[in-house]
Design a protein around this nucleic acid. Structure first.
Lengths: 337, 337
DNA sequence: TTGAAAGCGTTACCAG
DNA sequence: CTGGTAACGCTTTCAA
């Protein structure tokens, strides 16, 4: 690789000192206009750019933010990522992304890697199966700005950007009840940190509010992949009477569920209502079009990165618990009555 | 941020020199077993990790690869990204990702940013509207390992990993012809570098081979977004006789097209056959299930990163044109006759 | 077997 | 207004 121009190159060519060049380029301190002009001119010609490694070493700053997300082939997360990237780009920050596959072990490794890459901050959506928050606590102790997305590590003193999953699930369930559904099933992830668990609680609250008995059999666990979701849906079809509504933890699960229902000759929504979460781009193109809860993923990404920047500028404190709850929207289409 | 342990810290604590610590840690040169043991022990306790900034500055190497892709909210690209990330992670490389939105201007900026971030190599899927390859040529001139994905910048001396779009389109068109289609439309992107253009040529070749007149009216341009695709499909419905098949440049376009056809009371595939490209996860769940061409995006990602590594290890030359063509598969479902 | 010193590119401080 | 020097953390000579 051809070496890029350094301050030294410019200094040597102009027969002045490195410090003078540095000052001229940054327009700091007193400097003779002529010198300054010369330097700027040559720097332009050589296409000089400061070496971020040297700056990073000196300032203990890398202008890099680490992002940890469970997966990428999911519109929800890629949309968050786009939001983060937007703000980062505008503020001259780079992003390093790590994927955990919802595994605690991989996540711990990612945090360590990023920490030793000297990132200036970390935005993380913790893995569902997380039981030990030690690695995040280390980040907090090291005073590295940290923002959590979507999932709520109880008692962790960190800024958390989330949507109102509890409320959204309550609203969905209530709506289904009002359209006459009584046996409302759930295909969801119930792992400790999952949004599924928050929704599960909103669902239960709605049932209670309307005096409908909670039936544990109607809760089916899924890892949110297509195949386990289809299995989950098939499992629900073994009950009699059948569920009259199924709330799915995301649109992929809902898509898989609809497929199973239709393959078994059931009509949606006449026989069974189906609701998803996240409003993926394909959702309105399913048949029937899928009723879902849209989440402000892009905005969450923007907000997360803005929060990190604010922390870096000492505009907000680091080690306090702070929940920023963003609104989701119930989008009613044709998969419910 | 709490400062992480450095060689100096260890040296001071053990009352030995920095060089000795460095050697002990890397097990290089002669060193007293006892000294070595002490150093290793303390390094472990302090959780010492070498500072990548210092190493990068010294070796002019960052262990970072830049990835430039048009967009992220698209399964094809996120799947490529996952492949790249897999190999990168296994080889202790970090990834910085930039999105261009298919804009030449943004791409040029991304290349410059990455170059001045001192990345060790770049994997790029060039923007469709690219007419000037100057920024890539600079990379080549600077001897920075570069791999191109999917799109073919003519005459650029670079390794290109692509799928056989021409052949795939030929096979699709041929198959449609054999099922009786004669008025085969195309909703596609025809910009210079797009895979759409390669497919356009395979399509034309198939028509010619089977003696079917080429009809310019049946070619509709789309930016591959949902709304322009729907407009494109509507436009096709104005013709009489109607097209009896529509080949779409990706599955999102196909999904949008199917929606328009169905909204207009047309039966798929009885009235119109529809084919997509890329085999997105939702494709088999559409109604009818979508016939498409699956592309080995994950494998392409793996291959791209492996190629960069091989270049970095001087196992393959940098500045030669090298086309690696990977096979795609025609997946026949129910949206064609 | 170990230590001292130079150097990677930059900024900050102190002299002049 | 300008130059020299130390420092960031590391590896690599060269000497001892």
């Amino acid at each position: 690789m051809k070496n890029q121009a350094s301050l030294k190159d410019i200094a040597k060519a102009l027969n002045i000192s490195i410090s003078t060049v540095s000052r001229a380029l940054r327009d700091t301190g007193e400097i003779h206009p002529d010198t300054r002009k010369q330097v700027l001119e040559l720097a332009g010609k050589l296409n000089y750019k400061p070496n971020p490694l040297a700056m990073g070493l000196l300032k203990n700053r890398t202008q890099t933010i680490g992002v940890i997300i469970p997966e990428i082939e999911n519109n929800y997360f890629s949309s968050i990522l786009r939001g983060i990237d937007k703000v980062a780009g505008e503020n001259d920050f780079r992003i390093i992304t790590c994927y955990t596959g919802e595994s605690q072990q991989t996540e711990v490794r990612a945090v360590n890697d990023l920490m030793f890459s000297r990132v200036d901050g970390i935005i993380a959506c913790p893995a569902n199966d997380l039981t030990d928050y030690q690695h995040f606590q280390e980040l907090i102790d090291a005073k590295i700005p940290l923002v959590h997305l979507d999932r709520d590590c109880i008692d962790l003193q960190v800024t958390k950007i989330m949507t109102n999953n509890y409320t959204a699930a309550f609203i969905v369930t209530e709506y289904l009840i009002k359209t006459g559904c009584r046996r409302i099933a759930l295909i969801t992830n119930l792992e400790p940190l999952s949004v599924g668990r928050q929704r599960y609680e909103g669902y239960q609250e709605a049932l209670a509010r309307y005096g409908i008995d909670f039936n544990r059999e109607l809760i089916v666990h899924s890892n949110l992949g297509i195949s386990t979701s289809m299995e989950g849906a098939k499992h629900l079809l073994e009950f009699s009477p059948l569920p009259d509504a199924i709330i799915c933890n995301n649109d992929t699960v809902a898509m898989a569920t609809m497929k199973v229902l239709k393959d078994n000759g059931l009509q949606i929504p006449q026989d069974v209502s189906v609701v998803g979460f996240s409003d993926d781009p394909f959702s309105s193109f399913l048949e029937p079009s899928l009723t879902t809860v849209s989440q402000p993923s892009y905005l969450m990404g923007l907000k997360a990165m803005e929060t990190i920047l604010a922390m870096l500028h000492n505009e907000i404190p680091l080690n306090v618990e702070n929940r920023i709850v963003m609104d989701s929207a119930f989008i009613i289409r044709n998969s419910i009555r």
